[in-house]
């Protein structure tokens, strides 16, 4: 008998008392009722609690803000589907030396990613209550590796993509995409429970919320 049949057989045998399948009581909150302004305020509070840096700006201010945040970076990577307007103020000349563009068709190697200082991505959806940003690998967010290896992640969140609570956010995304949920920069509390921000993932997280 194969291990599969053996294990399924053992489990069926263990359940020979035919336990009842209970109804799931879903009395928890499915929506928060927060409006956009309240969502923004809550998300900012939660992200700052995680030691992320947050700016809330109008769409017109995004290019200058990104240019400013990248001022110190020797090089940076962007996914090939990133909104070109966001990069209008930074290295706008084609063929500039600082910018690397990544795509599934033409991916950078891990070593190349390790040599860049920063990454700029969009995001799929955010959760105000928990300070969480979810990336789903869409063209403006790129492969999972690009938002992981560089030490500085600049992440743009559209205010209309902010959900109040987690159930609202998860209902907006496709669970079969490669997903990364990010709540602040990487952190550890493994030594005497003292929180240290920045271990293996990006040590610096800048979030730009676009009203």
């Amino acid at each position: 008998m194969s291990a599969r049949e053996d294990i399924l057989g053992r489990i069926r045998s263990a359940l020979r008392d035919s336990p009842e399948v209970p109804r799931i009581p879903r009395g928890y909150r499915a929506t928060s009722g927060l409006d956009e302004a309240a969502c923004i305020e809550l998300l900012v509070d939660r992200l700052e609690d995680y030691k992320a840096r947050v700016s809330v700006v109008g769409a017109a201010e995004v290019p200058a803000l990104i240019a400013g945040l990248l001022a110190g970076a020797g090089s940076y990577v962007v996914p090939d589907g990133l909104d070109a307007l966001w990069l209008a103020a930074v290295d706008s000349q084609p063929g500039n030396a600082r910018r690397r563009t990544d795509s599934a068709a033409a991916p950078l190697t891990v070593a190349e990613l390790d040599s860049v200082d920063a990454v700029v991505t969009g995001s799929a959806v955010a959760v105000a209550e928990t300070g969480t940003i979810i990336l789903d690998g869409s063209p403006d967010q790129g492969r999972r590796a690009i938002s992981l290896v560089p030490d500085h992640h600049i992440c743009v969140v559209d205010a209309k993509d902010i959900a109040g609570i987690l159930p609202e956010a998860l209902r907006r995304i496709d669970g079969t995409r490669p997903l990364t949920m990010i709540s602040g920069p990487s952190a550890t509390s493994d030594i005497e429970l003292e929180r240290v921000e920045g271990v293996h993932g990006p040590r610096r997280l800048d979030v730009i919320i676009v009203r």
Binding site: A104, R143, R177, P178, T180, M181, S183, S186, G201
Partner: peptide
């Protein structure tokens, strides 16, 4: 889970994958 385990509103990173995604991971 995050609130019960580390006492955080959410843990810094959660990864989800469904089989193989071509060109990613």
């Amino acid at each position: 889970l995050p609130r019960s385990s580390t006492g955080e509103r959410m843990n810094p990173y959660t990864s989800l994958w469904t089989g193989v995604t071509e060109g990613d991971g």
